[in-house]
Structures are given as structure tokens and as C-alpha cells.
Write a protein that binds this DNA or RNA. Structure first.
Lengths: 334, 334
DNA sequence: ATGAAAGCGCTAACAT
DNA sequence: ATGTTAGCGCTTTCAT
């Protein structure tokens, strides 16, 4: 920077001013400085800027697992929003992590990022404690409701499940199974509640045998589907709380010679890109993943900029996307 | 840090010494400083450290798309290696990127990271130019051979394809199709060459109609498979250059009522986790994704530490993993 | 073994 | 409109 000042025959402050686009710089000088910057190929040192500004313009992202279209869409949304404010993204994966979990968070809090976005289904309370104590800006992504002390963004899980099951009900299905993620997850619990509510609205008794609990880390959708198929009064429709699981179900049904939707109706959840490339194209719930990522950044930035904002939960709407994986049952058969 | 020095009644230099674990600090003083740090919850400011050290201890990772198990495994490997040296990972996605591509790289080069790992099938030369001019440490991941001026890590693509096709040949298959990624990719070209070589070694004529070119960004495996099935002399085996494509092929075959491996043998590539969860479990080529990530970091670190090392290409070995998606043809039928 | 002081590259008062 | 200067929080000679 001193070099640029020399070449342009001005002071470093002036250089700094044009670097940061401030006013009160005569066009002549501005031009001269810009030229000098070009000639010297000058680019401001970020570390120094960060140091003096007290901000890193980096946000941390903690995910438990990469490699799903689900997380990919969220990250795309985060990136998009970050681009607007010229911030960078630091990635932390908790999967196969040898580091003590807390050290992890502590590093972020005291270190390199201005805030942290967490896309971790089951956030450990000790993480939150650390961040809370340090009043470190953070937001929890895709949880069902505010935990009271953190910002969070999620979706209307209850309504989504209610809509999906109601749609199936309108198609005259009466035996409707649900393959859900772990029920400890608040989102799963809400979806199951929505499922029950829809059934109840139609005066249909709830059958616990029709709910199968999967695990997103160790998917067992195939086994669960086969359990369903073996039932004497097997379901005519399956509602799955992720497209990934739905696709595994499709595979399994086909393996058993069943056709979709003729022999079994199927609804997924998330509306990942692949949902439209499988055959038949999957009827599913659109999960605003990309928007969730964007909202997370917005919420985080709000905290970083003015640290006195009280926790809030942002709830995004879902939408039933009807494609070809469901079919009406004839009222007679029903 | 000054606070710690005050509380411990020593100078800041001494505090710095214990923070960095230097010798020449009496045990008494060391203990006193450590206690002061604990009491005050002191954690060194990374920006300041980085500024004075002239290193950020952050490495950039540029990927074109997240959301595949392929990239996920690589990133896991990178993370693992980074953990050892206590560096952080900055993520750049080129997908849906509004930023001018060069600005992108330029930012990284002049900015925040000490080096860059690129997992981008088709690296633009202009990126490389920028990094080369700045002699910025970088490594290209999963390309087939050195480009002469960058470090890179890849696998033995030719051999891998040769092995896969030879296996099929030994199983008496004679009409063997290949569904490959874009042939502009050096890796794809090598694999196709390996395919041809294996055929030739068995004295089998090469049939261009049996090679179908897919696109990893816009997968068309289903359509391509159907083209293959419609052929009057349809293949009895398909070799696919990614497991993802292989799984789409499986789906398609099943849709057409064909059984694997009875009606069609199938070999994938990559050995992603899902390859073992589909039915039948996929015979495939093990692609050392995780190791590739680790090697990339090692190569990068070597460059960062001593910047005068000349470009090198690290080639990792693959391995045929035999599972249940292939079956021997009776010699008669063959 | 410990301390004093210079300086990493920049920004932002404060002067002029 | 432009220049001077004091830090930002740390590391690292150089003294002692």
C-alpha cells in the first residue's frame, strides 16, 4: 500500500480511501491511484483489514454430513446470500471428527469467523452454551421451533405432513404408512403430528404399525418397506419424510415387482433435484432449502451488525408438489 | 493478551511464549500465565497472528458442485489432513456463481487463504494463469495427469477401466457397453482408452455404438441405457464410469423388467457408500477419494512450506471391488 | 529466563 | 481534498 502511495505520489490514507471507495477524493487523484494499483497489481491484505476492523467477514458453517442434495441446496442458498455482502464461508464438518466437539466450537467463537450457521439435526447443548455465553452470533437451520435463546430458521413441518397425508386421503387411500427420520428430531415429531392430525380429520384410526422410524445416517428404508409389504393389511400409500428415503422405497418396491403408482402411492419430502429425474417423477413436499440458507445468512448478519437482537424463529412455508408417484384408489376398493 | 500479562505479572512476550509453547520459560511462570489465561478465558486473536506471521492457516477449496458422495468423501479426506495441521477450510462453489470467475480466484490468491485445492473437472486455464503468475500454491484433484505446471493428484484411470472390462471379459461377456462422462475430461478419455485396450487384448472389435457419453451435470443415464436396450445386438454388460450413473442404470433396467445381474451385468466406478446399500450390491472400482483429499492437502502444504518445489503428479491406485452386480455368461451363449 | 520495542498492512480519527 | 499518526493484537529480534 505504501508502494502504491509512492507511485501515485499520495499518502497511504488517500490510497485507503480509494480502495474503500470513499468520497472526498478528487477524480484526478482517484484515477492516479487506481492506475498505480493496477500497475502494481495491488490487492489489500485481508488479514490487516480484518484486524483493524475487528471483523473477519467470514462466516462459519457447521454441517454433520456433506454429500446430499439436501445440504447442497442449503449451502447454495448460503453462498448466494454471502456473495451479496462479500463474505466468505468456512466449512466445519462434524462427521469423522477427532477433535473434541467443544474445542471445535470454541475455535470458531474466538477465532476466525464472525458468526456460525449450524445445519446439524441434533445440536448439542454444550455448543449452544459456549456460543450463548460469548453472545456469539449463530443460527440453527432446519429445526422446528425456537429453542428460546438462538436464532433459527425452519419450515412448517406439521402443515407439510398434514397436506401430504390429506392429499393421499383425498385419493381414497386409507392405509397410509409413514417412514420418518428419528423421532427425537423436533422436525420429525412435528411431521408425525401432522400425519396423525390429517388422519384424525378424516376419522381414521391411527395405527402405530404404520409408522416406521428410519435413521438418516444409517438408512434402513429398504428393510422398513419390506416390513410394510409383509403386513396382512399392507398400506396402499407411503409417505416418506425425505426424498432420499422415498427413492430407496421406490427401488425396493420395484425389486418386489410392484409398480408405482399403480400398486403403491408414494410421497417424498424435500423436492431435491433428483425427485424430477426418477421415474415416475416423485410427488413430494417442496422444502425451501435454498431460501432457508439465504434466510440463515440474513438472520446471522442481523445479529453480527447489531448484537442486541433477541432470538427469533423464522418459519418458511412448504408446498405440495404433485407429480406422478401417486394414484387415486377406486372408492370401491377403498 | 496485555490483560493476561497484567494478571500473571509478566510481559506480553512471555505470554506469547507460553501461548506458542516455547522453551525458556520457567515452569513457575508458565503455570502462572496458564492460570491467568484460564481465568480470563483468553484465546489468541487469529487475525493478529495471521497478520504478523504472514500466513492465514486457511486453505481454499473450490468445487463445482456439492451434494454428491463423491465430493463428500474427498472433502472428508481434506478435512482429516487439515485437522493435523490445525488449518481451516474455506469453501468456494463455482456452481450458480454470479461472480466473475477470475475475480473469484484472484480473491483467494491475494487474500485469505494460503493455498487452493481445486476439485473442478474442467479447470479453466485463466484460473491457472492467475495462480501461476502469483506462484500461488495449488493442487488439482482428480485429473488424469500433470498439466506440467500445477501439482495434481489423480488415479490410474486407464488401468481401472482395463481391469473392469477384463473382469467382464473373463466372465465371457463379449458385448460390453460403456457409459462414460464427457470425453473432454482427461480422466474419461483415459478410461475409454483402458476399455478399448482390454477389448483389444481379447481380440474383440471395438464398436463405437457401445460407447455412450453422459454428462455429470445433466445425467442422461436412463436415456442412454434405453438406447442400449433397443439395439438389435444389445450388450450383456455395462461399465459405467460412476456409481451414480450405475445406480440410474439399475433403476432403468428394473423399470424394463430386467434383473441384475441375471439379465445384465453392471460395473460402476468410485465405490461410494451407496454402492453397498443398493440391491444387488454394486461391483465397482474403488476410487481412493478420501486418500485423494489427504494427498491433495499434503501436496499443498509442501508447496506452502517451501515454495520452490516443481510440479508433480501423484497417482493413486484403484482396485476392482467384486460384489453382486455381475454374472458369468455361459460360454455357449457367449 | 524475561522484558522492551519494532513492526506486520491496514483504517480512521484528527489535522491541515 | 489530502496528509499525519495512532493503533488493531500479536510475534520476534534484540537486550538484559
Amino acid at each position: 500500500m505504501a508502494d502504491v502511495a509512492n507511485v501515485a505520489e499520495v499518502s497511504v490514507s488517500t490510497v485507503s480511501r480509494v480502495v474503500n471507495g470513499y468520497e472526498h477524493v478528487s477524480p484526478t487523484v482517484r484515477a492516479k491511484v487506481k492506475e498505480a494499483m493496477d500497475v502494481l497489481g495491488f490487492v489489500p491484505n485481508r488479514q490487516a483489514q480484518q484486524l483493524v476492523r475487528g471483523r473477519s467477514e467470514v462466516v462459519g458453517l457447521m454441517v454433520d454430513t456433506l454429500g446430499t442434495e439436501y445440504i447442497s441446496e442449503i449451502i447454495n442458498g448460503i453462498n448466494e446470500a454471502l456473495l451479496d455482502v462479500d463474505n466468505d464461508l468456512l466449512l466445519y464438518t462434524t462427521q469423522r471428527q477427532r477433535m473434541k466437539a467443544d474445542t471445535y466450537v470454541r475455535r470458531i467463537v474466538n477465532g476466525i469467523a464472525d458468526g456460525l450457521i449450524m445445519v446439524v439435526p441434533q445440536v448439542s447443548e454444550s455448543y449452544l452454551d459456549i456460543m450463548y455465553e460469548a453472545s456469539f452470533p449463530h443460527v440453527l437451520v432446519d429445526i422446528d421451533a425456537s429453542n428460546g435463546r438462538s436464532w433459527s430458521v425452519g419450515i412448517t413441518n406439521w402443515q407439510a405432513a398434514f397436506d401430504a397425508v390429506t392429499y393421499l386421503l383425498e385419493l381414497n387411500h386409507r392405509r397410509i404408512a409413514i417412514i420418518t427420520d428419528q423421532l427425537e428430531l423436533s422436525t420429525s415429531a412435528s411431521r408425525l403430528a401432522g400425519y396423525k392430525a390429517a388422519l384424525e380429520a378424516y376419522g381414521i384410526a391411527y395405527d402405530p404399525d404404520l409408522v416406521k422410524e428410519d435413521n438418516y445416517l444409517f438408512p434402513a428404508a429398504r428393510k422398513l418397506t419390506e416390513q410394510l409389504l409383509r403386513m396382512p393389511d399392507a398400506p396402499s400409500a407411503i409417505f416418506t419424510t425425505s426424498d432420499l428415503a422415498a427413492i430407496r422405497v421406490m427401488e425396493t418396491l420395484r425389486l418386489h415387482g410392484l409398480q408405482i403408482p399403480r400398486d403403491m402411492s408414494l410421497i417424498g419430502f424435500d423436492d431435491i433435484p433428483t425427485a424430477t429425474t426418477v421415474y415416475p417423477r416423485l410427488t413430494t413436499i417442496r422444502h425451501p432449502l435454498f431460501e432457508m440458507g439465504q434466510e440463515a445468512v440474513a438472520a446471522l448478519l442481523r445479529q453480527i451488525e447489531s448484537s442486541d437482537i433477541s432470538p427469533n424463529h423464522i418459519q418458511l412455508e412448504t408446498e405440495l408438489v404433485i407429480r406422478e408417484s401417486c394414484m387415486a384408489l377406486s372408492p370401491l376398493k377403498a
